[in-house]
Design a protein around this nucleic acid. Structure first.
Length: 431
RNA sequence: GGGGGUGUAGCUCAGUUGGUUAGAGCGAUCGCCUGUCACGCGAUAGGUCGAGGGUUCGAGUCCCUUCACUCCCGCCA
């Protein structure tokens, strides 16, 4: 029998009642009732409630024990009464009556609590990384990553790919990002680069006649961090295939990604197959080559409106006559936004080099009308036509940019400003 | 490299217009409590208010310098 445990902390069930068992783990939480003490014992797998009362000679010793002390407990599995069942944990129908215990590892006062959902600054989390990694969510994330990587390896192997390793010290390769450099001892004044991607090596593998390559490769890039982008190092699935066309590559990646998310996420997938959007279409319709299709922002071309007799917005009409386009975005449910919100966007747009924004809100009393600085230039029919073209509703706001700028409604994960900037970039690309 | 934000107890944070002794929750220590699962109740300890300088009768609070962290821009497959 194993010296430390007969079971893991997620294993015991009703069927184990009356068994003599032993568990080893960390004291996750204590609830001390004075003459009765509950100890939640935690290991990698789960939590088991252990209980001891004052008749046991170890009571006072356990009562004083710090959270996160590592102990082995021996005892008997008992049923919990109906009212005291805890459905939150796997072992919630039973508890372990402690008969004996042994301290396997003591600890000092904790610099940060393990049992807590509180957010902590990165600084403190990294300083006490071993405690951070014990916390439920982080611990689960690490386990998830392990499982995902293992799954991907397995799938790639099944698809006939061979996994390769490539050197970490190399010479610089011509990707865009700055390289991390490592001084060379044997060649003073010269440096190795850490690979941003194993480009050269995988090409070597491919020309050597290995048919399908993959590697879950560390990628080093000496670029500044962002909230969603760790500095320095991350991992990517890198793959190469011989004697294939674009569709063959798509098929592998699409299947792998969809299946990975189906297996490991509870979130609903919008697509079983990746929607395919050409670069040109994406830039025209969304103003970016990575549109957020959960909340797509459509750039509408309403140039035609400015050829109508019943539209009197002369500046735009003139420009349209000389070949300019007018595009607009619709911002949903913005009728209650204060004037200052749009003034700020307008100000920002000007700072970014635009000539300014025009906007109005669609309203309906008896007739459709447009409220806003330029609203008065449009007839009811013209407004109805814009609504039809842009698929917008009463209460939405229509933001126009003459000439050069395409705008989009802000998706959830991008600021309006960022999105606007992308639109500007798009225009640069086109001109 | 540029801009913004933050820095107060071990942790998370509050602190009014510059005004007496800088607070709370969690954690720690001590005491009480036999059915909790964020157990409960009471008490105690714990502070260079990031650091340095300045203004002021008086600075956690205002100003300057500096450091750290963080977010954004630049940069980045």
């Amino acid at each position: 029998m194993n010296k430390y445990r007969t079971h893991k902390c997620n294993e015991l069930r009703k069927e184990d009642v009356d068994k003599k068992i032993s568990l080893s783990g960390w004291i996750n939480k204590k609830r001390d009732h004075g003459n009765l003490l509950f100890i939640d014992l935690r290991d990698n797998y789960g939590i088991t409630q252990c209980i001891i009362d004052k008749d046991n000679k170890y009571f006072s010793e356990l009562e004083k024990m710090q959270l996160e002390t590592v102990i082995k407990v021996e005892g008997k599995v008992v049923n919990r009464s109906k009212e005291t069942i805890n459905s939150e944990i796997d072992t919630g129908e039973i508890e372990v009556v402690i008969e004996k215990h042994e301290i396997l590892g003591t600890c000092k006062e904790l610099p940060m609590p393990v049992f807590s959902d509180q957010e902590y600054a990165e600084e403190i989390r990294l300083k006490y990384r071993f405690l951070d990694l014990r916390r439920k969510k982080i611990h689960e994330n690490i386990i998830l990553r392990s499982k995902v990587i293992s799954y991907i390896r397995n799938e790639m192997t099944k698809l006939g790919f061979l996994e390769f390793q490539t050197p970490i010290l190399t010479s610089s390769s011509p990707e865009g990002a700055r390289d991390f450099l490592v001084p060379s001892r044997l060649n003073p004044g010269k440096f190795y680069a850490l690979p941003q991607a194993p480009q050269q090596f995988k090409q070597l593998i491919m020309v050597s006649g290995f048919d399908r390559y993959f590697q879950i490769a560390p990628c080093f890039r000496d670029e500044d961090a962002r909230a969603d982008r760790s500095p320095g190092e991350f991992y990517q699935l890198d793959l190469e295939m011989s004697f294939v066309e674009q569709e063959d590559v798509f098929n592998v990646v699409e299947k792998l990604m969809v299946n990975t998310f189906k297996n490991f996420s509870t979130k609903k997938l919008m697509f079983d197959k990746f929607p395919k959007i050409s670069y040109k279409e994406a830039m025209l319709k969304y103003g970016t080559d990575k549109p957020d299709l959960r909340n797509p922002l459509i750039v509408n071309d309403i140039t035609e409106i400015f050829t109508r007799e019943d539209v009197s917005f002369e500046i735009f009409k003139k420009l349209v006559k000389s070949g300019s386009k007018v595009r607009c975005i619709v911002t949903k449910n913005t009728k209650d936004k204060p004037r200052s919100f749009f003034d700020n966007i307008d100000k920002w747009a000007k700072e970014e080099g635009a000539s300014g924004l025009a906007y109005f809100t669609f309203e309906k009393d008896k007739d459709i009308s447009a409220k806003g600085p330029i609203g008065k230039f449009f007839s009811q029919d013209a407004l109805a036509e814009i609504m039809k073209k842009t698929n917008c509703e009463i209460g939405d706001k229509c933001i126009l940019e003459k000439l050069k700028i395409d705008l989009n409604l802000r998706p959830q994960n991008l600021s309006f400003e960022t999105y606007y900037k992308l639109a500007l970039e798009y225009e640069k690309l086109r001109s």
